[in-house]
Lab assay of single mutants.
Amino acid sequence: GKELVLALYDYQEKSPREVTMKKGDILTLLNSTNKDWWKVEVKATANDKTYERQGFVPAAYVKKL
């Protein structure tokens, strides 16, 4: 199945390749080969529509579930 990670801290994206997350968010882990930056998929809701974004977050800010 898919691997999930838990956001340990809030993170505000600093570039278009990154994604914003809030502490407590559960994210889908896409790639953890880089030890510093993990690629995740974030589900977000805006205007009653759910959309998914993929991007990088600092590996130290998340932990595998």
Rank of each mutant, 00 (worst) to 15 (best):
N47K: 07
K23Q: 07
Q54L: 07
V42S: 14
E13Q: 13
V57P: 00
K35V: 09
N47I: 09
E41V: 13
Y11C: 01
V57I: 08
I26A: 02
I26S: 02
D36A: 08
A7G: 03
P16M: 08
G24S: 01
S32H: 06
L29R: 00
K43M: 14
K2I: 14
L6I: 15
T45R: 11
L29Q: 00
T20A: 06
L8V: 06
L4A: 06
Y9I: 08
D48Y: 07
N34Q: 08
N47H: 12
E3F: 11
Y11D: 00
D36R: 13
S32Y: 09
T50R: 09
L29S: 01
D48E: 10
E41N: 07
A60L: 10
A46L: 14
S32C: 13
V62K: 01
A60S: 13
K43P: 15
K49H: 11
E41M: 13
P58H: 02
K2R: 13
E18T: 07
A60E: 10
K14G: 07
K14S: 07
K2G: 11
A60Y: 08
L65A: 05
W37T: 02
V5C: 13
K63M: 14
Y51P: 10
S15K: 07
K49I: 14
G24I: 01
G1L: 12
G55M: 05
K35Y: 07
S15N: 10
R17I: 12
W37R: 02
T45W: 11
E52G: 14
K35A: 10
L6M: 14
R17C: 15
Y61C: 13
K23H: 05
K22Y: 10
V5Q: 01
P58Q: 02
A46K: 14
S15Q: 06
G55W: 03
N47V: 08
P16Y: 09
P16S: 12
K64E: 07
T28K: 12
K14A: 09
L27N: 01
Y9L: 08
V57W: 02
L8P: 00
K2Y: 13
E18N: 05
L6Y: 10
D25S: 06
R53Y: 07
A60P: 08
Q12Y: 14
S15G: 13
I26D: 00
Y51R: 08
D25E: 10
W38I: 04
T20H: 04
W37C: 05
N34R: 08
A7R: 00
D36G: 08
W38G: 01
N31P: 03
A46M: 13
V62M: 06
T50A: 11
Y61W: 06
V62W: 00
W37Q: 01
K22L: 07
V42F: 08
M21E: 00
L65E: 04
E52K: 15
V5S: 02
G1Y: 14
K43R: 13
E18Q: 11
W38M: 02
T33H: 10
K43V: 14
V5M: 04
E13Y: 04
K64M: 10
D25H: 05
K64S: 08
L8F: 04
E52I: 15
K39M: 15
G24A: 02
G55Y: 04
F56W: 15
L27W: 03
K64V: 11
Y61I: 06
V57C: 05
E13M: 13
L8D: 04
A7S: 05
P16D: 10
N34S: 08
V42I: 13
T50V: 13
E52V: 15
E13T: 07
L30T: 04
L27C: 07
A60Q: 11
L6K: 08
M21I: 15
Y51V: 12
K64A: 07
E41I: 12
W38C: 05
D25N: 05
D48V: 05
L27E: 00
G1W: 12
K23A: 13
K49N: 10
Y51S: 11
A46N: 13
D36K: 14
L65Q: 05
L8A: 03
R53A: 08
K14Y: 04
